[in-house]
């Protein structure tokens, strides 16, 4: 039922059937011109020849993808070897997004569970509290995080004042800072679907398990978790996907050593690299990965819906 509501509605009527095309036309036209056409144009640009200092020459070329995967030496005539630079950056992005997802899950699951087991009028208040920070400017949140975590920042001050540490912890410009930033950026996406799943969960099942002498943790693992798995899965996807292509967290909290896909792409258009076809190709590879993940997750959800009846 809820899945139907989320995907566009179960309570549909046909009062405005005749006007339907006209009602939808503005949305179709706007999104076709401003989203669909640009993505197609990006695909085309990734197969064009680069113009130095930005832009393209309209001549077919596979150079962008070739540069991404193969190293042909300085003059381009050495035998092709695998180019690890960009694959490493992609791999790091996947790894960082995975770590951020795990962190969000470890903290987000108990939070979602706790909220879902509050009284019915307290639940929206808790959900509201968790989602407010999400609506604050991502840039401001990331800058705030950096300010808090700095070597001379309030967190280190506090920890040194209470005597927990003697010298400041170096958190900024580490992988962990990026993971923390990503966690901070997308946590509500983890909490909300799990919350929705736990709220629908029938606690009589847990009671039945308890009556059969299952311990509380066994009940959690063997009865509750399988029942709310689709929510957990959706949460993981919703955190992982935007984390992978993020730009602000790695740029502000990670420093130059912790380069991720977002920064690699940005540099092709805004920075010194100025290689548009290469930036378009890297974007296409990222987009393809994301679409594969989304397709896979839709299939999983459909399977889960079927299994759940």
């Amino acid at each position: 039922m809820a899945a139907g509501a989320a995907s566009g509605g179960s309570a549909t009527t046909d009062t405005y059937k005749e006007a339907r095309t006209w009602l939808l036309l503005p949305a179709w036209v706007t999104l076709a011109i401003l989203v669909l056409a640009p993505v197609i144009m990006m695909l085309i640009y990734s197969f064009l020849t680069k113009e130095f200092r930005g832009g393209v020459i309209w001549e077919f070329s596979l150079a962008a993808y070739d540069q991404f995967f193969f190293d042909r030496g300085l003059f381009g005539d050495d035998p092709a070897k695998i180019e690890w630079t960009y694959i490493t950056i992609f791999w790091r992005s996947i790894w960082q997004a995975g770590a951020a997802t795990l962190l969000s899950l470890v903290i987000g699951f108990p939070t979602a569970y706790f909220i879902a087991t509050r009284s019915e009028n307290m639940r929206p208040v808790w959900v509201f509290l968790i989602t407010i920070p999400y609506w604050v400017n991502l840039l401001i949140r990331t800058v705030s995080m950096k300010f808090l975590l700095r070597d001379q920042g309030p967190l280190n001050d506090f920890l040194m004042n209470i005597g927990l540490i003697d010298s400041p912890l170096h958190i900024v410009n580490t992988n962990f800072a990026v993971q923390l930033g990503l966690f901070y950026s997308y946590l509500p996406f983890m909490v909300l679907p799990i919350y929705a799943a736990v709220e629908r969960y029938n606690f009589a099942l847990s009671e039945a398990a308890a009556d059969l002498y299952a311990s509380k943790w066994t009940t959690l693992r063997r009865v509750l978790l399988p029942a709310v798995k689709p929510g957990v899965f959706a949460g993981c996807i919703l955190v992982f996907v935007p984390s992978m292509g993020s730009f602000l967290a790695p740029d502000l909290l990670g420093g130059a050593k912790n380069f991720m896909i977002g920064s690699l792409i940005e540099e092709q258009f805004k920075g010194n690299a100025g290689n548009w076809p290469f930036g378009a190709a890297a974007s296409m590879i990222l987009l393809t990965m994301v679409l594969i993940i989304l397709m896979f997750s839709t299939r999983q959800q459909a399977k889960a819906d079927k299994a759940g009846g």
Partner: peptide, 14 residues
């Protein structure tokens, strides 16, 4: 669904 940075690149190119 499209990652924000990808939408940014696509719009600029368009």
């Amino acid at each position: 669904m499209v990652p924000e940075i990808v939408l940014a690149v696509a719009t600029l190119i368009f």
